[in-house]
Design a binder for these strands. Structure first.
Lengths: 340, 340
DNA sequence: TGACTGCGCTGAATCGTTCCACTTGAAAAT
DNA sequence: ATTTTCAAGTGGAACGATTCAGCGCAGTCA
């Protein structure tokens, strides 16, 4: 049955050299003559040898593997971010393994522990809301660095990379205000989360600066899902005079809002303006194309990956928070007909 | 600096027992008295010990880790499927590591190899279109089973699980025909792929059975993205009398089609019917809610996970193809106003 | 000729765990 | 009283790689 695993020794035997030579050859060591190396490679290919990285890492006491922990892969924004992150790491020669936590703390604990048990060199995490440093500690091997993206870790001894949420919603709200709108809604998001606070703060700052009267401003939180958002906005529209513009917590919320408004008989981009946040790919293909706050996902991913890789080289540098200034991308959903 | 890794021996020392005892205690062996076990656990927690699964797997020559290879995580359907699969495996006590290939064969080769190098017990793959068994072979360690989902592997020596694409589009096309429509379009998909062939075949079978004249049927392939679909359908509408119904290759295509139709001034669910395939979560929150072919993602995931786990127990059972009969979910996008 | 250099390779210890073969001490069976 | 059995735990050889000290050998130099 030859169930036996093929090892470096088997390669050595077929190539007629020693174990050590094979090992060095596989690592492209200059101590091995190119000719010998070729011979080794050929032997390896011939018998179908597959490197055992676990064994290597055991001896070498380090790895190139980084564990990526994502809160919700069914959210297009996080999926796009995850893909970007993965690319950043693999471009630098690291190996990425990914796991989804479905916004569940237990699942999150489990996957972090699993990654550490498998010898991850570092952890990149989009944490579940409310994650604290002491949630993570027991599962992380000593010395394994953590970098968090998008959401902070409470008491976190780690680097943290996120878009500048405040200035993002500030800018997009100003974009609506500049068109002369005076009755605005901030829609979506979970009130107890820091990201919500920041995005709402940006919105509030903009309307206050513009001197808008408080009674013309509404804040309608809801779960950041299409369904919740569409229901919430539909309900609001039924209750009375509609606002002129809706600044949404995220693109997903904005999509939901558009569907809800459509059902309520309002025309987004004509009777009413809607803006998103994140600028996922679907924004531009949407109808009407959705104005959104572009957060430079690729840039966030690159910063996050770089932070983690820096820290792998140099454990004891101070922790840093980095934020990326987003940019408003104006599309049709926020252009109103002149009248009304 | 105490950079030294904590091992089972350190735990043994603090607990005042032997290495072996700790190992057995961690595995909940009945050879260890509960009392001793408690003592060991306490010691482990106290010093912050983290199990080294790589070392264990090395010795034990097996693992509970399965590698999941996904072609495109930014596609909501595959993201939902991936999450479902992950849950199926973790529910059975397996550890899942995931990687995205972005529909790139090289990336796919790389992640498969990486999983094998890290000692994956099995591989679950949504392969890039066109993947053949001989693409995979060189990267897979001897005896590691592979299960593919959604898309077949050419010459594949593996189990294969997918929805019954033919009957899916057949049924949804019939749903349109039953409403008296006679001019239909099949939109989207890449012609050289098996999934496209099957879905188109189902469509064709339905219209033929209904005796629809060939000149009333159009097939418009395009990349299965929102953008491509919206452009393709918009162009088609400009060219002349619109069809009554559009059967789309996938939900993503259908979303794009709806946006394109909207821009072209047609009202989906009133002037024209649109149907999707996959029934992703966003279908029901869409406006109008999208009629789609529900493929029972959870069931597919469960079958796939079970197949892989079966094969891990019993290597030499014959390979099987399983398909799940989908179900048409009728929503507003396919209900036409009586007139027209 | 003998000492030295350095290239290319090898032998053996080691990483953290598992698990088989063994020990030990006490209780049960003869 | 002696043997047997058993429960609970220990010792140490693997697992498949890395890595370092060292070895033979050819070439160089004085």
């Amino acid at each position: 049955m030859s169930q036996k695993n093929l090892t470096i020794s088997d390669v050595a035997k077929t190539a007629g050299v020693s174990k050590s030579t094979v090992s060095l050859a596989l690592q492209d060591s200059p101590k091995i003559k190119p000719e010998t190396r070729k011979k080794v490679m050929k032997a390896a290919k011939k018998i179908g040898y597959v490197y055992n990285r676990a064994a290597a890492n055991l001896r070498r006491r380090s790895s190139e593997m980084i564990g990526m922990v994502i809160n919700d892969l069914t959210n297009p924004f996080f999926a796009e971010l995850a893909v970007s992150l993965e690319r950043s790491f693999t471009d630098s020669g690291y190996v990425v393994m990914m796991a989804n936590t479905s916004e569940d703390t237990h699942q999150q604990d489990k996957v972090i522990r699993t990654f550490c048990e498998h010898g991850a060199a570092g952890i990149l995490i989009c944490p579940v809301f409310g994650t604290t440093q002491s949630d993570l500690d027991p599962h992380i091997s000593r010395g394994v660095p953590v970098v968090s993206v998008m959401r902070p870790i409470d008491g976190g001894e780690c680097d943290y990379i996120a878009p500048d949420n405040i200035n993002g919603t500030l800018a997009v709200t100003q974009h609506l205000l500049e068109q002369g709108m005076t009755r605005l809604v901030f829609l979506g998001g979970l009130p107890h989360t820091p990201v919500y606070q920041q995005r709402l703060n940006g919105f509030t700052a903009a309307v206050q600066k513009a001197g808008i009267k408080a009674e013309n401003i509404e804040v309608i939180p809801c779960a950041p899902t299409q369904e919740a958002a569409s229901i919430a906005i539909e309900k609001r529209i039924k209750q009375g005079e509609p606002p002129q513009g809706i600044v949404c917590y995220s693109d997903i919320v904005a999509f939901g809002a558009c569907f809800g408004l459509d059902r309520a008989g309002l025309k987004v981009g004509q009777n009413i303006a809607v803006t998103g946040f994140d600028d996922v790919m679907a924004c531009s293909a949407f109808s009407p194309p959705l104005t959104s706050v572009h957060v430079f996902t690729d840039q966030l991913a690159k910063l996050a990956a770089d932070s983690l890789m820096q820290r792998l080289k140099n454990t004891d540098r101070p922790f840093s928070n980095q934020s990326v200034l987003p940019k408003v991308i104006v599309r049709e959903s926020s252009r109103l007909a002149v009248e009304n």
